[in-house]
Design a protein around this nucleic acid. Structure first.
Length: 492
RNA sequence: GGUACCUUGGCCGAGUGGCUAGGCGUCGGUCUGCAAAACCGUUUACGGCGGUUCGAAUCCGCCAGGUACCUCCA
């Protein structure tokens, strides 16, 4: 069945600007490279959205039965502030600021990143290579690009020759731009006099004596440019051409365009068959970014400790919120939207326990098989999680109606519903049931049984004051009481 | 300036030619000691103006507004 499903998966390819049927180069293997974070500061929620989006894609590919090698790098060197040679990169700057070693900065923010990814329940990639761990590979690649004639050395630095490359290849292909247009857009910046052409970009940058992070190379001591690490690492772990290359949309024009040029120049082939770009998270309509200073830290979001937030929201509320929009759409971040997501998420989770208490019937009033097909169809249509969620809410309605005895379900229906809910909610959407945290402990179960018993006897004596007091006090403590026909239920 | 993209109901957000996504909210009802939850119903929209078409939120053109990229950013 999964094989059947896998055949109809379509993915939007930035390269062709079309949805294409997904046909891996070497099935059942799939190689996927996603540009990871630059770990010189805390990642904000916008970064998280990208990695959560790719987690959804990774999870779905796994569910379809593909053997995915998911590579997501850690950029821990080589990013300068702007396109100029001031000596130090972002890590060294931050290290001076925080009075730490550059590698302490890297360690600190890498750990923070992993912590946040775990809170959002994303699966770790299979390989998480670092730029500093692959200096040799980057140097080798630069050497090949030089040999191929698409780069030149000036005074200990190496630059990619975009003009020459453009004569043979379509440099602006990924973003549909002509070299003339690109040139038009570039600004005159300082420290560019070494470059032959304004569009050229650095592959290797000569270090100054005081540069904290530098490595020896055929061109002297220096550090790699901004784009070569991803080309070197993706080639090393996935080969010269692999299936999916992903990242945020902001990387499309520069980083990914240059990656393609580097791979073409070095390996004579485009690195990836499908280019997948995730859209930005916005706040009040403007892109959330480090430079704009409008980024939310995950911690601020969870605690509610931020001027724009009324209160905190749990990681799963946020993950659900993100899954409710398509990965290629911008998603606007607001209290109202988060509150709506929180309720929706809760409703979805509660339906799971409701599902457990539906009595089976000999006949059926619903079509579960069709529902399941629609769920797969949604995911197969370029990972359309919002449509999937709409179908899951159809399932929720069926479940709740069945509890209310307005729909009847056969044992097969019930098994099908359970399979749908567990597969899509947990395996694919990557949600976890946060509401189950403390329940399950024997002590709490025992206490709750006692409290509910006391409340029941108060109710039998029509002692509403006591009954309501218990209900209200429990609510204060974060426990919700539900009086149903079948008895009293409670939930953290 | 160049290149793309976007504009959907009170809010969020799918949908790319006919079959009124979905969530949250609102209001009404059922249930309940009262609530909550749940269920049923309600609210039914596609920036403006033209065009193509039997038929357009969906295609084309123009206009208005917005965003992103072209410097590091997921």
């Amino acid at each position: 069945m999964n094989e059947e499903m896998a055949k109809s998966l379509v993915i939007y390819n930035t390269l062709t600007r079309k949805k294409e049927v997904f046909e891996p180069l070497h099935p059942p293997h799939v190689g996927m490279y996603v540009c990871g974070p630059t770990v010189y500061s805390d990642i904000h929620l916008g970064n998280c959205r990208t990695f959560i989006s790719f987690d959804l894609i990774y999870r779905y590919l796994l569910h379809l039965g593909y053997r995915v090698r998911y590579v997501r790098n850690i950029t821990d060197a080589g990013h300068l502030e702007g396109d100029r040679d001031e000596g130090d990169d972002k890590f060294a700057k931050k290290a001076r600021l925080e009075q730490l070693e550059p590698m302490e900065i890297v360690q600190k923010y890498t750990l923070g990143f992993h912590e946040v990814m775990a809170l959002f329940n994303t699966l770790p990639p299979n390989i998480e290579p670092t730029a500093t761990g692959h200096i040799l590979e980057q140097i080798e690649m630069i050497k090949k690009i030089l040999e191929a004639g698409f780069a030149y050395e000036v005074n200990g630095s190496v630059y990619f020759d975009v003009e020459k490359y453009s004569r043979e290849h379509d440099y602006g292909r990924l973003t549909n731009r002509k070299p003339e247009d690109l040139l038009e857009g570039t600004r005159e910046l300082d420290g560019q006099d070494e470059k032959r052409n304004r569009l050229d970009f650095a592959l290797w940058i000569k270090a100054k004596a005081e540069t904290l992070m530098q490595w020896p190379s055929p061109w002297g001591w220096g550090f790699p440019g901004w784009h070569i690490e991803c080309s070197a690492m993706s080639t090393k772990y996935l080969g010269t051409t692999f299936d999916i290359h992903g990242g945020g949309m902001d990387l499309q024009a520069t980083h990914h365009t240059n990656e393609i040029a580097q791979s073409q120049a070095c390996n004579h082939t485009s690195p990836a068959k499908y280019w997948v770009h995730t859209n930005m998270l916005t706040v009040n309509g403007a892109r959330m970014s480090k430079s704009a200073g409008n980024g939310f830290l995950p911690k601020e979001l969870f605690t509610g400790n931020h001027p724009l937030l009324d209160r905190g929201y749990s990681p799963m509320t946020v993950r659900f919120f993100m899954a409710q929009s398509h990965y290629r759409s911008t998603l606007d971040f607001s209290n109202e939207a988060l509150q709506a997501a929180e309720k929706g998420y809760k409703k979805l989770m509660e339906s799971l326990s409701a599902l457990e208490k539906i009595p089976p019937s000999p006949s059926s009033s619903v079509n579960i098989g069709e529902l399941e097909q629609r769920c797969y169809a949604a995911m197969n249509d370029d990972f359309n999680s919002p449509v999937l969620i709409a179908h899951l809410f159809d399932a929720v309605r069926i479940i709740n109606s069945a509890v209310d005895k307005k729909e009847i379900l056969t044992p097969e229906d019930l098994a099908g519903l359970k399979r749908i809910m567990h597969t899509f909610i947990f395996d694919i959407l990557g949600l976890v049931d946060e509401t189950k945290h403390l329940a399950g402990s024997d002590v709490i179960e025992g206490l709750m049984r006692l409290i509910i018993e006391i409340r029941q006897s108060a109710r039998e004596q029509k002692d509403w004051a006591t009954s309501d007091r218990i209900r209200d006090a429990l609510k204060e403590a974060g426990i919700e009481i539900k009086d149903t026909k079948e008895g009293v239920e409670w939930r953290m």
